[in-house]
Every structure is written in C-alpha cells, then in structure tokens.
C-alpha cells in the first residue's frame, strides 16, 4: 500500500489486513504536523478502507493533547467501521499522559508490536 501522501508524517507498512503505522516525528507537538498526521490517519479509513490499524510509538518522545484528540477521533472512525485500533511501544512518560487522562481505558495499548499484532485476533 502506498503512503497516504507525499509529505506524510507517517510510515505505513502492511501486515495482512493490519496497517502498521510508524510516526516519523519524535515530537508530535507542532499543530500543522498534528493536522497532517490526523488527515493521513483518517485517510487510512476513509480513503484506503483500512479497518485494523496499529500505531507504533517507538519513535515518539513527546505528544500533546492535540495529538490525543486525533487518536480519539481515529478510534471513533475505526469503531464506526467495526475495526480495531491498537497502540504499542508507548514510552513511560507518554503512557503516564494516557493514564492520567484515563485514555488508557479507551485505547487498546500493548507493550510491543508482537503483542499488538496478537491483540487483533483476540
């Protein structure tokens, strides 16, 4: 599958039905980048009809509440298509952000990519 856009902030890799998404940026803070990341993530569902999406945060060191908002909207879109969104490799600091905002309850968060892939068949 080709990446959603030439200036994408994402790298998308296919694993069967699952689209594995890696973030190019270490800091998902810049509003314009977040906007672009949101558009590219949403296009996976709206344009490419992907229903199983794995977000791998291995490269990510910072994110803001604006980025969380995009992931929430993505989750809603995936659920509307009866799909599944799973996250993995979230570092300790970022995981704390998910915990304190209670978003760790909303999202399916796995330790690594292998357990995240297994979570799709659970």
């Amino acid at each position: 599958m080709s990446t959603p856009g030439r200036r994408s902030r994402l790298e998308v890799e296919d694993n069967g039905e699952i689209a594995i998404v890696n973030f190019i940026d270490r800091k998902i803070l810049d509003e314009q980048n977040i906007q672009k990341i949101g558009e590219d993530l949403f296009s996976l569902i709206d344009q490419y009809d992907r229903k199983k999406i794995l977000l791998n945060f291995i490269n990510v060191e910072y994110l803001s509440s604006a980025a969380l908002g995009k992931f929430i909207t993505l989750n809603k879109k995936v659920q509307a298509k009866n799909g599944k969104l799973v996250m993995c490799h979230i570092n300790e600091d970022i995981y704390e952000v998910f915990e304190i905002t209670r978003l760790d309850r909303l999202f399916n968060i796995q330790k690594d990519e292998q357990s995240a892939l297994q979570a799709f068949s659970a």
């Binding site: 509440s65 604006a66 969380l68 908002g69 929430i72 304190i100 905002t101 209670r102 309850r105």
Partner: peptide, 21 residues
C-alpha cells in the same frame, strides 16, 4: 471535566488538566 465518563471521548479540553498535573 476531561476525566468524566461522558467527556472521555471528547477530542479536546485536556490542556489545562495536563498543565495542572
């Protein structure tokens, strides 16, 4: 309140909460 169940899926409104944390 961004922690309220009914607000958990709101895509915005967490900035001040994070600052306070």
């Amino acid at each position: 309140d961004p922690l309220a169940d009914e607000n958990l899926e709101r895509p915005c409104g967490r900035g001040l909460f994070l600052i306070q944390h």
